[in-house]
Design a protein around this nucleic acid. Sequence first.
DNA 1: CGTATATTTGATATCCTTCAAGGACGGTGG
DNA 2: CCACCGTCCTTGAAGGATATCAAATATACG
Lengths: 262, 262
Amino acid sequence: MPSESRSAIPEDASPLVRRLGRSMLLTAEEVDYLETMQVNQASVDKGDAFIHDGEVMRLTFLVRSGWVMRYRITAGGRRLIIGVSLPGDFIGLHVSFNTSSIYSAAALTKSSLALIEPVRILEIHRRFPVLASGLDWMTVRHANILAEHKVSLGARTAAQRILHFLLELWTRLEQVGQASGKGFELQLTQEQIGDCMGLSTVHVNRSIGRLCKENLMRIEKGFVSFPQIRRSVSFADFDDRFLMDFSTKPGMPDLINKIASN
Amino acid sequence: MPSESRSAIPEDASPLVRRLGRSMLLTAEEVDYLETMQVNQASVDKGDAFIHDGEVMRLTFLVRSGWVMRYRITAGGRRLIIGVSLPGDFIGLHVSFNTSSIYSAAALTKSSLALIEPVRILEIHRRFPVLASGLDWMTVRHANILAEHKVSLGARTAAQRILHFLLELWTRLEQVGQASGKGFELQLTQEQIGDCMGLSTVHVNRSIGRLCKENLMRIEKGFVSFPQIRRSVSFADFDDRFLMDFSTKPGMPDLINKIASN
DNA sequence: CGTATATTTGATATCCTTCAAGGACGGTGG
DNA sequence: CCACCGTCCTTGAAGGATATCAAATATACG
């Protein structure tokens, strides 16, 4: 196994470096650039919005720690959560353009964000083609998640949607070292889950109740786990390919199988 | 108005060049590269699938003419249309990797596709940074459309969703010169609209009926129009910012207003 | 310990789906 | 030219999934 030949990723590497390092060989120079890029940081308190629908985007954000939601308020006054951004995720990656934001973003937990000049992203494309591919892949993956959510909202039942979403979060958290095979700490209220999956709070509650009774999931003090992962994956129609890392080498193992066996 | 200073886009330019030329200044060399990239073409008959869920993607596709749908069949046997690809749209733009496709694609009308070696995309990034930004933007725009669909499925009524979707198609078609201020030729059955918006065929039919009765849209022999565009936009909560072109210059006019005044 | 926030539960209303079948339209072949 | 056939559109009736309204309980927080 030549997996040791990849350049060492430091223990204290940022989630971004950890994420990219999972699937590509990074040079010391690349790692250094990525870390230096994140020096300018901001802390955001739980509940605080830091991107406002309609305002011009001047920066790219990178979540370093905490959970963030991107959302929209419709004319009818309903909130819909477009997606949840976890450590290692960019927000507004390719906004090297003075466009006004078409969504808002707020911290779901106290979070730390790196504030990145859009110019840096362009520089990566010029100087580090390998990294650039990695960033492009992150944008594609972002779209994949949205597509999967569309499938969920359009063609899955409430219980399936919720379970699918939780399995997605589990997988994504594991990819940045924030979840184990046991499960993960859920940083969302049932109302937020509903806003994300297009369901009312009440219905989310009842559906979760049913899922727990069926032993398709468990939740204790905010810690979510899946006692019978195979059944859960099957019930939710969860196919983890949409969360695949960028990878030049074939034969990466199935994510869920790998995680569950930890 | 220095709009004449941009290098001339030939009359017979491909939809891709037309699209990119709308918002950025292209050199003759860039235009040439983009056109040459599309020499390898394939024709697909209405109804035929050319990407199959699970199969390895070896090419990037570019729609030159016709309408294409990307879709998924869930475990429950339901089809969900992830999106409709129109002339000038890429399918699998950043799949320079031997990943298996997570969706299928089929022609909604007889279509012409350019088959592009993924290596060409990398080459664009190396040789034509301006074009590369344009392509990255197309990926972002693609994600924007998915996000908007998620908002529709999650927070809009059936009638709003349908009208919103039709306004989207109109705007996108106009961007590649395939629709006028009058309206456009709809190449979707009501069943396909339903599969795209997460609605049953029957409900699509009734909702369209209501929309027509309310004069929020009109449909005659497949030609869709909006007699009172303001009311339609307002009813559907349609904000065209999610379809904005890549643009370095500020102050592009609102799309819908511009189109409707043709 | 008290207040705000989040979860849970019940009852009712609505949107949407499903099932079923009739009608319109366009294409094709005799 | 017309009969036939497939596909799409349309309409009716009934059932199910989910929303809404309302209130009680639990949990977190200062």
